[in-house]
Write a protein that binds this DNA or RNA. Structure first.
Lengths: 208, 208
DNA sequence: GTATACCAAGTTGTATACAGGTCTAATATA
DNA sequence: TATATTAGACCTGTATACAACTTGGTATAC
């Protein structure tokens, strides 16, 4: 029920396509005309997508010179992780008085899906279910600002060179599952401070 | 050193002008063509500004129907305050080991400027210096993601109906100054947990 | 050989043209 | 009179035209 008209706008498809291009990471520069040919649409929706991506920090528009995709620096990566720590721990603290059994059951179910994906060796699915765990932690309170920021941080964190980083240490994925279980255990014991502490340690591991 | 060319783009002036229009709050709806006449520029830069403002949550573009400025709801307002609590308290916690005397002196100086603005009855200046205090607290660590988010939350919080709200209870501004001093006192005593507690209580007062 | 001037290609910034959806109100029709 | 229809004004989505700026190479002057 976002809007009665679900007509897909070209600027949104352009946004997705350009982002995909960035994730593939073949190129470092591009231009509007290049994208016009690649996406088979006019400059207008492409410009609108580029503007949005610039504000979100994914690229820089150099006036009269071109477009450069901005690499995720170590500093930005660590800052985004601190952002996640700030909002995820605070949301969990706020959630303390609202946690009910069905929340715990849902979190357990998500961890179960993670394990299933791990056993199946489905890398992409595992990453997605990992995100789901953190997302659901935020859903307990449901602060939409937190959720929006989380989505952004996560996307930026994983859009660029995420694949490489994770694939270099595949075992870390199993560790993540164990850590989620540790967090959930603390929540189940109603020991929120411990859960927060585990959550911080868990997220800190993503830093470089 | 943002960019060697500081040529102001029309889309940026459009962005500022439209925001000013929102702050004045005379109208609730508008259209691209209306803005074309009011701002004396073509639709292109106006559309780019509108797109940005939409992503930032200031307005909604209804396809083929028009543009509606989105009022700041009580829920969104409270969510933004929780966002500020999350990042400001976490940043202060991180700052604990880095706080030096010159930081404390600078914070005292800012409070001094607040008092001066209060005595002078300069409303706008007082609001600006209030923002400066919180901004500087974030600057100690300097997480640019935090700062960007703080700016957004603050702007959204104060863009719509801020004037009304504050002017209805003018004494609260003096209270704010006292609370800043309380926070700074705790920091000076190196009692960061207390400072955080005071900060939370201070920000919570903004909720409705 | 070196430095300068200039030109051509490519880029984004800006303006405008056209297409198609939405709403309103006048009008035709029962 | 009530209802359906239709025409027109207005809106944004999309495409394109034009202007101004950057850059790199080439020709020219010295």
């Amino acid at each position: 029920m976002i809007d009665k008209h679900d007509k897909v706008l070209l600027k949104d498809t352009a946004y997705d396509k350009i982002k995909e291009k960035m994730i593939r990471g073949d190129e470092e520069y591009t231009s509007e005309n290049t994208l016009v040919q690649e996406l088979s649409m006019s400059r207008t929706p492409i410009r609108e997508a580029l503007n949005r991506l610039q504000y979100e920090g994914f690229l820089k528009i150099l006036p009269n010179r071109g477009i450069v995709f901005t690499e995720l620096s170590v500093e930005e990566r660590n800052e985004l992780i601190d952002m996640r720590i700030a909002i995820e721990t605070y949301s969990l603290k706020q959630a303390e008085s609202r946690i009910r059994d069905h929340h715990i059951q849902e979190l357990a179910r998500i961890i179960g899906m993670q394990e299933k994906a791990y056993r199946a060796g489905d890398f992409a699915d595992l990453v997605e279910k990992d995100a789901l765990f953190h997302h659901y932690l935020l859903e307990i309170v449901g602060n939409s600002q937190f959720i929006k920021m989380y989505r952004h941080a996560r996307e930026r964190q994983f859009t660029v060179r995420a694949g490489k980083w994770l694939k270099n240490q595949p075992d870390i994925l199993q560790t993540f599952i164990e850590e989620h279980r540790t967090i959930l255990d603390a929540i189940t014991r109603k020991d929120i401070p411990a859960a927060i502490q585990h959550l911080v340690e868990h997220l800190e591991k993503g830093k470089l």
